[in-house]
């Protein structure tokens, strides 16, 4: 009757059953990969929303900035609330400008350098906020297949031990083990593929936003530099006349 038992189909092969039949290493790998996939998608959703928000904010700020409004007024309205993107760069530069002029700066060169530094700092902070957590996507994209493969190798090892234990090379003995082992690789790929695609897309988006902000910073720096020259020049001329 042994042959009859061996010929019976290898039990339930649904995904849930495969998960429960797996050994603890494979289970751990699968749970980890599921967690990685959840976190990956959380980051993807979050970043996509954040970039859309940022793009809208940049458009609105540029519109306001180039509308001919007085920079003083703009600064006053912006400094009262929390700003992001170009607004933050603008506020940082204006704050430095105001501080220097309120105390009566002497050296225009030093002022220009300080303003640039402040803008660089604000830009770096903004970029960090934009690109934060993208590293996790890169890690998942590159390592999840390997983690899944690890689970598969361990699972297949187990199923080969099962062959040795049952002294039968019947496919019904081997198949469930291999199926559950392959589930780990499937989950690894399932986590890795969206992570890689999203990482490339989000990095490109972040780079584009960063370039826009950098361009604004340069432009604003040029405007301020002109202003400094204009403010410093009459004074020196007056000194000459005096």
């Amino acid at each position: 009757m042994e042959s009859v038992a061996l010929a019976a189909p290898g039990g339930d092969l649904s995904i849930w059953a495969l998960f429960w039949q797996a050994g603890w290493v494979v289970k751990l790998v699968m749970i980890g990969l599921l967690g990685a996939s959840i976190w990956t998608w959380a980051i993807i959703v979050d970043k996509t929303l954040a970039y859309a928000r940022m793009r809208r904010a940049l458009n609105r700020f540029e519109q306001v900035f180039w509308s001919g409004q007085s920079l003083e007024e703009l600064y006053r309205s912006l400094s009262e609330r929390k700003t992001t993107g170009m607004g933050a760069i603008f506020v940082a530069a204006m704050r430095e400008w105001k501080k220097s002029f309120e105390k009566g700066a002497r050296s225009p060169l030093g002022l220009q350098t300080r303003i640039d530094k402040a803008m660089d700092l604000a830009l770096a902070r903004e970029m960090e906020r934009l690109e934060g957590k993208l590293g996790f996507l890169a890690s998942v994209g590159s390592s999840a297949p390997f983690i899944g493969l690890f689970g598969t190798v361990v699972g297949i090892m187990t199923s080969f031990q099962a062959i040795a234990g049952s002294k039968s090379t019947n496919l019904a003995v081997v198949a469930p083990g291999i199926a559950e082992a392959l589930l780990a690789t499937a989950m690894g790929l399932l986590a890795a593929i969206p992570a890689v695609i999203a990482y490339n897309k989000l990095t490109a988006d972040a780079g584009r936003l960063g370039a826009r902000m950098e361009g604004f910073a340069d432009e604003f720096s040029a405007i301020l530099s002109r202003q400094i020259d204009e403010k410093v020049a009459p004074r020196t001329r007056a000194e000459e006349y005096a």
């Binding site: 976190w39 990956t40 959703v45 979050d46």
Partner: peptide
């Protein structure tokens, strides 16, 4: 939070359909 909630919901739905 929104991203995490969306992601968990999506995964739960996918797993449910898969099961």
């Amino acid at each position: 939070k929104a991203g995490l909630a969306t992601s968990v919901t999506l995964h739960a739905a996918l797993l449910g359909i898969g099961l």
